[in-house]
Design a protein around this nucleic acid. Structure first.
Length: 561
RNA sequence: GCGCCCGUAGCUCAGCUGGAUAGAGCAAUGGCCUUCUAAGCCAUGGGUCGCAGGUUCGAGUCCUGCCGGGCGCGCCA
């Protein structure tokens, strides 16, 4: 519908350019907005204000000329000039309500577009090291990353979801020592407990499983425990698998799946770390100092150079990171999005600097980053800091167990990524209108309830032409709902392009609100079957968009509540 | 000290590439269930958009400075 307005305006602009009123050698950025105030019609454009200077005419006069040149269209009922020179478009009812048929015929496909044209995009998220269960911060990353992936798919991209983790290195040694200590019956408060060991109860669980010679299966590996308390390598191998499985269970409970699990160790095993060092050396961006090898990241905007090989010969995490991203590039992903906690934001400059230093033809500013801010969990107004299982933080599983998957996903995706998020457990658990998840789901359930009643009346809503006649729609509430439905495709495009999944949750809250208002004000199961069927058609369209939108967040649409 | 992010109603937050009198929910107050699910709806009040400048036809939105909060500033990840 908005496209119609844009086309009309483009024609009018072209006409004025042909007459020399507007300069011909200049492209004008056409801005058409949905109006906030109904008094301003359905759509408004500021084009007359923007082009007034170039035309050398007052905005309102220019608006007049533009309106004269607008082609006739049955979609537009009225056009007005308002304020300093806005042009307001009032759409005809037939045109406004046509969206209902559009939604119903597109069904699950409504809102999708193919702007991605099948381009491969990789999104890396969560990427937690296998040293403990996932915490709320990972949960926020999972909710955002997966929602973003779904949004990109909705825009026609081919998305690879990737999880990278460190399965070697100091943290993993630390994990192995912690599990070994537990195997030997040493507790965190004993003198023999390893320095900086992991103290959570899950370490004891892993130790028990090891002693029982358990077999654990994770998405990317399967390991059977040896049971030998002195074989540290075997313990390490088992502990990693054990915690990978724990994280898999967390992710499964959350409804998130990955296509690729990428191991840091593979970069070493396949010589990719070495090759990266060689390339950086060859390009002259490295130097030795204090027995360490440094990369001149300052030449690419960093505030200090970074150590890539430590004086003990080992590499810092930074170098494998560069090798990993080179690998992503070589796999052909021209668009890569890294979703991470903002506490790691300093890696952004560093990794990009390393990639530039490789001179591998990687564009500056590649890859993209989506950094989410911290999550604070509250209960009864008090900050919750501890988990029994993990000891020092709130786990994702705790949250899912307590408030449910739907509410957890919704809440963690509902805020702008760059503002801190307060997760209010009481709110997420509450079953009232203060909880947006239930509010939206309830709208869907209400619609389903009405449809069941219709079926009892013997009405076949699946009949080919059921509700195709929309002449029964005429109410303001119906118009508002139709306009909201019409906004959905643009929302899907914007949310993906801007990498801002939270728009979806707000949109759905608004749509549900409009529906509840309508539902309470006007009955749908009335004797006038013509009007009734038109209204049911609108219900079906709302239901469809709720389903489509909730699916993009990974939240269910229950038929009964 | 330096870098990144945030500061909008009592609370939690929206505000789309600058656009018309700044929005929603909760909380507060007062209403609505023999009627399709009250997990809902309606009405009312509530704001110097942290502060001060600047850019322009127009600034919550862009620029600069300051104040306040978070995160980072490792040969950890």
């Amino acid at each position: 519908m908005k496209d119609t307005v844009i086309q009309l305006l483009e024609a009018a602009i072209a006409a004025l350019q042909a007459e020399g009123v507007l300069p011909q050698d200049q492209a004008f950025k056409l801005n058409v907005d949905s109006t906030r105030d109904k008094a301003h019609g359905d759509f408004a454009t500021n084009i007359a204000l923007v082009t007034a200077k170039a035309a050398g005419k007052p905005p309102r006069q220019l608006a007049d000329l533009l309106i004269e040149k607008l082609p006739e269209s049955s979609a537009v009922a009225k056009v007005e000039i308002a304020g300093p020179g806005f042009i307001n478009f009032f759409m005809s009812d037939a045109s406004s309500f046509d969206i209902v048929n559009t939604v119903r015929s597109a069904a699950d496909g409504f809102g999708l577009n193919n702007s991605g044209a099948g381009e491969s995009v990789q999104i890396e998220f969560v990427s937690a090291n296998p040293t403990g269960p996932l915490h709320v911060g990972h949960g926020r990353g999972a909710a955002i990353g997966d929602c973003l992936a779904r949004l990109l798919e909705a825009n026609g991209y081919k998305v690879t979801r990737e999880f990278y983790y460190n399965d070697a290195g100091a943290q993993i040694d630390n994990l192995a020592l912690s599990v070994q200590a537990r195997i030997k019956g040493i507790s965190p408060d004993d003198d023999l407990w390893p320095k900086d060991g992991y103290r959570g109860d899950y370490i004891q669980d892993a130790a028990n499983a090891y002693l029982e010679k358990a077999t654990v299966t994770a998405d990317d590996r399967e390991v059977t425990a040896k049971g030998d308390a002195d074989d540290l390598a075997a313990i390490k191998d088992f502990a990693v698998a054990y915690l990978r499985r724990e994280q898999d269970l967390d992710l499964k409970a959350f409804g998130v799946k990955f296509d690729v699990y990428f191991l840091e160790s593979s970069l070493y095993n396949e010589g990719k770390v070495e090759k990266t060092v060689e390339a950086l050396n060859a390009n002259g961006f490295t130097y030795e100092k204090d027995n360490a090898l440094w990369l001149k990241t300052t030449e690419f905007g960093d505030d200090k150079d970074r150590v890539m090989r430590k004086s003990d010969g080992g590499y810092t995490y930074f170098l494998p990171d560069v090798a990993y991203h080179l690998d992503k590039w070589q796999r052909g992903f021209s668009t890569v999005i890294n979703e991470q906690g903002a506490d790691h934001h300093s890696t952004v400059t560093r990794v990009r600097a390393g990639l530039q230093a490789l001179k591998a033809g990687i564009p500056e500013g590649w890859p993209d980053y989506v950094l989410h801010q911290m999550v604070l969990v509250t209960r009864s107004g008090q900050e919750v800091k501890l988990s029994k299982r993990a000891g020092s933080y709130v786990t994702l599983r705790d949250l899912i167990d307590e408030v449910g998957r739907d509410a957890t996903r919704f809440f963690l995706a509902a805020r702008r990524v760059d503002s801190q998020l307060t997760f209010d457990i009481d709110l997420a658990r509450s079953q009232t209108n203060e909880n947006p998840v239930y509010y939206i789901q309830y709208a869907h359930a209400r619609i389903c309830s009405v449809l069941r009643k219709l079926q009892e009346l013997g009405v076949d809503i699946n009949a080919a032409d059921f509700g195709s006649d929309l002449s029964g729609l005429a109410l303001d509430e119906e118009r508002e709902i139709a306009n909201q439905l019409a906004r959905y495709p643009e929302l899907i495009a914007n949310a993906a392009r801007q990498r801002e999944p939270h728009h979806l949750t707000h949109y759905l809250r608004e749509l549900a609100g409009l529906f509840h208002t309508y539902y309470n004000a006007h009955k749908v199961l009335i004797d006038d079957t013509a009007v009734r069927d038109s209204r049911v058609a609108l219900y079906l369209a709302v239901k469809q968009v709720l389903v489509n939108g909730l699916d993009l967040i990974g939240v269910s649409a229950p038929e009964e509540m």
